[in-house]
């Protein structure tokens, strides 16, 4: 057993546990995007960053891939962590504003601006589809091809793969291409929606700042269309 402290709380976990799992065990919520319980951790989205401190030195690590070590001091919600997370969401939003999951994360974490060059990609290279295809569907039909800014996900030779069984697992798990944000503000400059944020929550579950995170709720999106922009 390994002893470590998360946000000052002592916890004992088994060898090989990741920081994310240890935090989850304590009920500490760390947002994730490319993490899935049934798949191997990948550390692509960087949303799960936490701060680990050793004396006065501190560094940021992705909690989904960092193994718990003896005496480690982990802080999941320090100011610099929250700032880094906001920046990560902002970067994702600049890449792929059409994703409802990313737009929801932006609303939830108070991202109100995108300071980067706006792109309209359909993929954030999180690798979830590649992993579900390999690890759960045992197919290995798709994978990363190319490198650098040309790295993308496709089948061999960009043609239908012989080993693909059209199970749809890749589309089911995709945070970007499946569930699209149809909010009213996505097409505008800056491509940040935040529409759900400004509406009376029609859902049962809501937060103090009137945000709905029913999954997927979408009622607010439909309502947003009927409310004049000046009143939002």
């Amino acid at each position: 057993m390994i002893k470590l402290s998360i946000n000052g709380i002592e916890v004992e976990v088994e060898q090989g546990t990741t920081l994310l799992e240890a935090a989850k065990f304590l009920g500490i919520n760390i947002p994730t995007l490319c993490y899935n319980d049934g798949l191997s951790p990948y550390g692509a989205c960087r949303l799960c960053v936490v701060e680990i401190r050793d004396g006065t030195a501190s560094k940021m690590v992705s909690s989904c891939t960092y193994p718990a070590t003896e005496g480690l001091k982990v802080f999941t919600h320090t100011e610099s962590v929250l700032k880094a997370r906001k920046m990560v969401i902002e970067l994702h939003l600049a890449t792929c504003p059409g994703s409802k999951i990313i737009q929801d994360l932006a609303s939830k974490h108070g991202v109100r601006q995108v300071r980067f060059k706006q792109e309209y990609e359909d993929c954030i290279n999180c690798g979830l589809c590649v992993r579900i295809c390999e690890e759960q569907m045992m197919a290995k039909a798709i994978g990363f091809v190319g490198r650098g800014d040309k790295r993308h996900i496709t089948t061999p030779f960009d043609i239908k793969s012989d080993v693909c069984r059209l199970c749809g697992g890749c589309m089911y798990i995709c945070p970007a291409c499946q569930l699209r944000c149809h909010g009213p503000n996505v097409q505008e400059e800056g491509a940040i929606c935040n529409a759900c944020l400004n509406l009376e929550p029609p859902c049962v579950d809501y937060f103090d700042d009137q945000m709905c995170y029913m999954d997927p709720c979408v009622v607010c999106e439909q309502a947003a269309d009927r409310i004049p922009k000046s009143e939002r």
Binding site: K140, I142, G143, F144, T155, P156, F157, S161, D162, V163
Partner: peptide, 8 residues
């Protein structure tokens, strides 16, 4: 070896 791995 899966073809995609060689292709990657």
């Amino acid at each position: 070896i899966p073809l995609i791995e060689l292709f990657s």
